[in-house]
Structure formats: structure tokens, C-alpha cells
């Protein structure tokens, strides 16, 4: 079975001309389907850049990135959009839509697959999985940081993605809430066979990981 993610000879640069700076150097790895992989490294080591390249949020410049059997390098806007629909993202900042209620935010992730009957009910179920069944119609401004991040988790999971990319999902949370969110991801991922790639600085999360990748100065360290 093909791995969920295959990366080969991946380089990446930021900036132009004099300011051009290489941030990724020949990165190569595979991630098997269903694994929970933690990506570690100092800030500025290229973790977030790598994550956004895998998720099709940034154009691949050099090398090959295959996600769920699809090459992301040079893919058209249509192919990238379709690929993203099979992924779920949890961002450092929750990135909820401030004009929408919790349940509407989660619905967004369902509606992208086309008109879904009972979308509202499905979104409400996803929120009850993260313990927010009594906050369905709250706007983000009325939710605490932990609650917002849990809405973001519910949103990432609601579309039943095959891969979840999480960029420091616990950064905005206290220790207890952070661990709870990761445990939730692990539990739900295991139940659905979802592959999860998580960037984190949080050492307590490592026990839950199937595998740990470490980045340093744009290079992947040998395991």
C-alpha cells in the first residue's frame, strides 16, 4: 500500500534575489497511512514550511511531494483544491471565522464537499465529540482559547479527512487542555484510520506519537 505521504529531494527558498534564502534542504521521508507522526525542531527549522507544502497551502518549488497518491509539485489550482478537501488543518491560531457561530464554522468543512443533507446535525455531532455541544451557536468572540481550538479540531475532523495536519495545535492552550486536544486527535484518528502529522514543541505529546521526525536548519535529522 502506498504511504500516505512521500517526500523526495524537497528544497524550498524564500525571498528573491539578494534576500533569497534556502529554508529546506533535500528533505525526504515517507509516512505510513494511519500513523500519528510528530514533527519537532527549533523555531525557524522549517517545520511549518514543510507542513504547508505537504498540505498544498504553498507551491512546491523543487522536489517531489506525493500526498494520498497525488503529486503536489506543479499541480493546478483545481487539483490542489481537491487534494485539500481530503485533508484537515489545525492552525497555530485557531483561524475560526469570526462572523460565524461554532456550528457554522464546522459546517464550512462539510459544505466544501457539496450540499450535504443534515450538514448542521453532522457539524453539531462533531462539536459534541470535542465536548462543545452546549456552545453550538456561540461566535468565536464568546469562546475561550481552549474552546476555540476545540472548534478548530472539530472543524478539521468533520469532513472525515484522510490526513490531518496540525501546526502547534496546543500552542494557545494550557497544559491540561493541550494534552486533551492531542489525546482527542489520537483517539479519533485511531478510530477512523486517519494519518496525522503534528508540529509541536510540547514534549508531553511525544508519548502519544507513533513516530517522531526532527528538523534542524531545514534538514531532516536521522532518526
Amino acid at each position: 500500500m502506498e504511504p500516505a505521504i512521500t517526500v523526495r529531494a524537497l528544497d524550498h527558498h524564500f525571498g528573491e534575489g539578494e534576500a533569497r534564502r534556502q529554508v529546506l534542504f533535500g528533505v525526504e521521508f515517507d509516512i505510513a497511512r494511519g500513523a500519528l507522526v510528530v514533527l519537532m525542531g527549533a523555531s525557524g527549522s522549517g517545520k511549518t514550511t514543510l507542513l504547508t507544502l505537504l498540505g498544498g497551502l504553498r507551491s512546491v518549488q523543487a522536489g517531489s511531494v506525493r500526498v494520498l497518491g497525488r503529486e503536489m509539485a506543479g499541480a493546478s489550482a483545481r487539483v490542489l483544491a481537491e487534494a485539500r478537501r481530503r485533508m484537515g488543518f489545525i492552525f497555530q491560531a485557531h483561524n475560526l471565522h469570526e462572523s460565524l457561530t461554532a456550528v457554522q464554522n464546522v459546517r464550512l468543512a462539510l459544505d466544501v464537499h457539496g450540499a450535504v443533507p443534515e450538514a448542521e446535525a453532522a457539524a453539531a455531532r462533531a462539536l459534541s465529540l470535542v465536548g462543545l455541544e452546549d456552545r453550538l451557536h456561540y461566535h468565536p468572540a464568546r469562546l475561550s482559547g481552549g474552546q476555540k481550538q476545540r472548534v478548530a479540531v472539530a472543524r478539521a475532523l468533520a469532513g472525515s479527512p484522510e490526513i490531518i495536519f496540525a501546526d502547534e495545535p496546543t500552542a494557545a492552550l494550557d497544559a491540561e487542555n493541550g494534552l486533551a486536544v492531542v489525546a482527542l486527535l489520537k483517539r479519533l484518528g485511531a478510530a477512523r484510520g486517519t494519518t496525522t502529522l503534528m508540529v509541536t514543541h510540547d514534549n508531553r505529546v511525544l508519548d502519544l506519537a507513533d513516530r517522531i521526525l526532527t528538523m534542524r536548519d531545514g534538514r531532516l535529522m536521522p532518526a
Binding site: 498540505g55 497551502l57 489550482a77 483545481r78 483544491a81 481537491e82 487534494a83 485539500r84 478537501r85 481530503r86 485533508m87 488543518f89 492552525f91 483561524n95 471565522h97 469570526e98 462572523s99 464550512l108 468543512a109 466544501v112 469532513g159
Partner: peptide, 14 residues
């Protein structure tokens, strides 16, 4: 823009 970017990340198109 930030919210649209998030929606774009979900797979919404132009």
C-alpha cells in the same frame, strides 16, 4: 483575507 485563506485551505475554490 485570513478567513478566506482558511477556507481556501479547506479546499474551497475561487
Amino acid at each position: 483575507l485570513r478567513e478566506y485563506a482558511t477556507m481556501k485551505a479547506m479546499g474551497y475554490r475561487q
